[in-house]
Amino acid sequence: MPPHNWIDLAQDADTGIETLRAHFEGHAYDPHWHDSYLVGVTEQGVQQFNCRRARHQSTPGKVFLLEPGDIHDGEAPTEDGFTYRMLYLDPQWLTRELSAVFDNAPDNSQLSFANTLTTDVRLAHATSLAFQALHQGELKIVRQTALDGLLERLTRHLHWRAGYGDDPRLPSVAKKAREYLHANAQYDIGLDQVAAATGVDRFRLTRAFKAAYGMAPHAYLVQLRLATARRMLARGEQPATVAMALGFADQSHLGRWFVRAYGLTPALYRKRCSNLPDSQAREREDRVQ
Rank of each mutant, 00 (worst) to 15 (best):
M1W: 13
P3R: 14
W6E: 04
A10D: 03
A10E: 03
D14P: 00
G16M: 12
A22D: 01
G26L: 05
H27Y: 07
A28F: 08
Y29A: 12
S36H: 15
G40A: 07
V41P: 01
G45A: 08
V46A: 06
Q48K: 11
F49M: 05
F49W: 04
N50K: 02
N50A: 10
R53H: 13
A54E: 05
R55W: 06
H56V: 06
Q57G: 04
S58R: 01
T59E: 14
P60G: 08
K62C: 09
L66R: 00
E67L: 05
E67R: 12
E67T: 15
I71F: 07
I71H: 04
T78H: 06
G81A: 08
T83V: 09
Y84I: 07
Y88K: 09
L89Q: 00
L89H: 04
P91C: 10
L94V: 02
L98G: 02
A100G: 13
N104E: 12
A105F: 03
P106K: 07
S112T: 03
L117M: 06
D120C: 02
D120N: 09
V121I: 09
L123D: 00
H125P: 01
T127S: 08
S128R: 06
F131K: 00
Q132F: 07
A133E: 00
A133K: 00
L134N: 04
L139T: 10
I141D: 15
A146Y: 00
G149H: 03
G149L: 07
L151E: 05
R153E: 11
T155Q: 08
D166T: 12
D167M: 06
D167K: 03
D167H: 10
P168V: 10
P168Y: 05
R169P: 00
R169Y: 07
R169W: 08
A174G: 10
K175G: 02
E179Y: 13
L181G: 10
H182I: 11
H182T: 04
A185N: 07
Q186P: 05
Y187G: 05
D188Y: 05
L191D: 15
L191Q: 12
A197G: 04
V200L: 07
D201F: 04
F203T: 15
L205T: 09
A211V: 10
A212E: 03
Y213N: 05
H218T: 15
Y220A: 06
L221N: 00
V222R: 02
R225Q: 13
A227P: 00
A229I: 11
L233G: 14
A234Q: 10
Q238V: 14
P239G: 08
P239W: 05
A240I: 07
A240M: 04
A245W: 08
D250H: 08
S252M: 05
S252D: 09
H253K: 04
H253M: 02
R260C: 09
Y262K: 12
G263Y: 02
L264V: 15
K271R: 15
R272A: 15
C273P: 01
S274P: 01
L276P: 01
L276W: 01
P277T: 06
P277V: 07
A281I: 09
R282F: 15
E283S: 15
R287Q: 14
V288G: 13
V288C: 11
Q289Y: 14
Q289D: 11
